[in-house]
Design a protein around this nucleic acid. Structure first.
Lengths: 332, 332
DNA sequence: TTGAAAGCGCTAACAC
DNA sequence: GTGTTAGCGCTTTCAA
């Protein structure tokens, strides 16, 4: 691996000149065009590549960002995947290395502090399950002049810029879609209360009554297939007629779908179903599943952009990415 | 951020002594126990943390490895996810940073050479879709003394250690499972020829005839839901009775399942179905789907272990991880 | 038992 | 136009 020194020696000139020319940082001065040319050529011939560690040591800038993700979403939902792809593609474009850490257990995530390090990375992205209890540690980290952007569903502190998305709107959008398609008695499975709020809003905005018997609530968040099945059974048992179901995950929606199909209910003719997350498997459900997406790729990309702006000394504002509707057979 | 210098000044001693004590590298000599104690305490109090860039510059060792993945497997199959989690968990244990790059398009992957860099990372992991055309570039990289381990399904060059898995065995294992469960006329959807070979082997080993009408082959690899549907229709149209289907992906298997269920076929009573990849959604198919897994987590973990061994100057051999069977309702 | 000094490869202020 | 020099934070050899 050729160094600046090697190139300088080859040409019999000083290291600093080579550095200046190669970096295009001549300041007010200049250099002989033919020398410039020669330096460039020699460097290329010798296959010179900067040593990032040396640059980092000298400049304090690493061209690397850390990303810490506490896995979220059900396995297979594609949520983490999408975020990662968004960040990764943007990072490549901006020539940033991208240091990843996954966490499964909470303690691991809380230890993120040991890993973030101003002398490794220029900034930090934090995503996945939100951790309010991290606020203090994050503010401290920020105070030590480490740029931070979070990718939680909502901002956990006004000082920490975040790429959020609107849970309420997600519920509203899903419900409103069913209404637009013609559903009038829409059931809902509650995990996040905010999405339920969106569901209610949609009913209100469309002058439709809210029927408590059609809201299935177990408490806690779960989003599981099993919960979907239990909910469907609950709706059937309630003897309350319904013609739409808004689930809070695709997995839940699959549970609902399978129970209803088994009970002889036709989808979407008798009941329309919509899920959330737009998981890859929506396409190959028995009846392909409509869904509302969190737009993970876009959020990841935007988060990295914001982080780079912060690193460059600009100020950034939190933003919210709207959910997106994907229509398939189940709400046809 | 306190430096060695800061700690040394605080105690009025030399930098090198602090370094030696903190690293436990006293060589043949020693230091006063109480001084050692004082150094440790002061470092802790001052919240001293090594500057990795400086260590890297001085030692030429980065404690970071690069991982380059050309996405593979159908979205939602969880293949990439599993690999990444395996590598990540092992990396954390071994205190290695972990520099990620995803590739979607082939050109991007071929440019991996620009990114690998002895002065950023100590070794390289390459995984996902195998790229035989990379052999030359990889050997060159290796010759420049960069440790490399690949995570392709099979080794692409004898000089490049690889964590493979056995495609033939995957086909055999899936087919044999159906046979053990009682299936006698087993259909197969061909994407990879090797898996088909395994399918044939299983039939042969169990003294069962091979019926060409029950082998669906479109050419090329695809693994899609749509191919599964076409295959199922093909089997039905062939008027050849069958009581088992070995698909080469879970998505294909879902396609088969949905077509058969719609045609009134009972699963597993009339026909057993098994997929491959053990995708997360296997659990919430209409009838939960049995599958054979590539064991991505284990492979990722092992690959990192091998890479670390290489970095430490040991020699490693390629290994093959056996597939694993996950039984669910569809082959009950 | 402790410290001085060189060096890893690069940048940047300043001198010539 | 070009070169000298100090310095980023650490490790390591050698001397005291």
């Amino acid at each position: 691996m050729a160094s600046l020194n090697d190139v300088a020696n080859e040409l019999g000139i000083s290291i600093s000149l080579v550095s200046k020319v190669l970096n295009g940082r001549m300041g007010t001065t200049g250099a002989r065009p033919e020398l410039i040319e020669a330096i460039r050529r020699t460097a290329a011939e010798m296959n010179y590549q900067k040593n990032p560690a040396a640059v980092a040591l000298s400049q304090g800038r690493h061209n690397a960002i850390g990303i810490f993700i506490h896995s979220f979403g059900r396995p297979g939902s594609g949520n983490v995947d999408a975020l990662l792809h968004g960040v990764s593609s943007e990072a490549r474009q901006k020539n940033q290395r991208f240091i990843l850490d996954f966490f499964e257990r909470e303690e691991e995530f809380l230890a993120f502090n040991d890993i973030t390090n101003k002398s490794i990375m220029d900034g930090v992205l934090l995503g996945g399950l939100p951790h309010e209890e991290l606020v203090e540690a994050l503010l401290e980290l920020k105070a030590s002049s480490m740029p931070i952007v979070t990718i939680f569903d909502k901002q956990i502190n006004p000082l920490l810029p975040n790429v959020s998305f609107d849970q309420v709107e997600m519920g509203r959008m899903a419900t409103d879609h069913l209404i637009q398609q013609g559903s009038r008695k829409i059931a809902h499975i509650v995990d996040f209360e905010e999405r339920c709020e969106g569901y209610c809003n949609a009913l209100i905005q469309n002058d439709m009554p809210l029927n408590g018997k059609l809201v299935y609530r177990e408490g806690g968040e779960d989003f599981s297939y099993a919960r979907g099945r239990r909910a469907a059974q609950f709706f059937l048992d309630s003897k309350t007629s319904f013609d739409g179901v808004v689930a809070q995950s695709d997995e839940e929606a699959m549970g609902v779908m399978n129970v209803l199909l088994a009970a002889g209910v036709r989808i979407p003719d008798d009941v329309r179903i919509i899920g959330m997350d737009n998981a890859p498997y929506c396409d190959f459900a028995g009846v392909s599943l409509s869904s509302v997406s969190q737009n993970g790729v876009q959020r990841g990309r935007l988060a990295l952009k914001m982080l780079m702006a912060l690193i460059d000394g600009e100020t950034v504002e939190s933003v919210s990415i709207p959910p997106e509707l994907f229509v398939r057979e189940s709400t046809g």
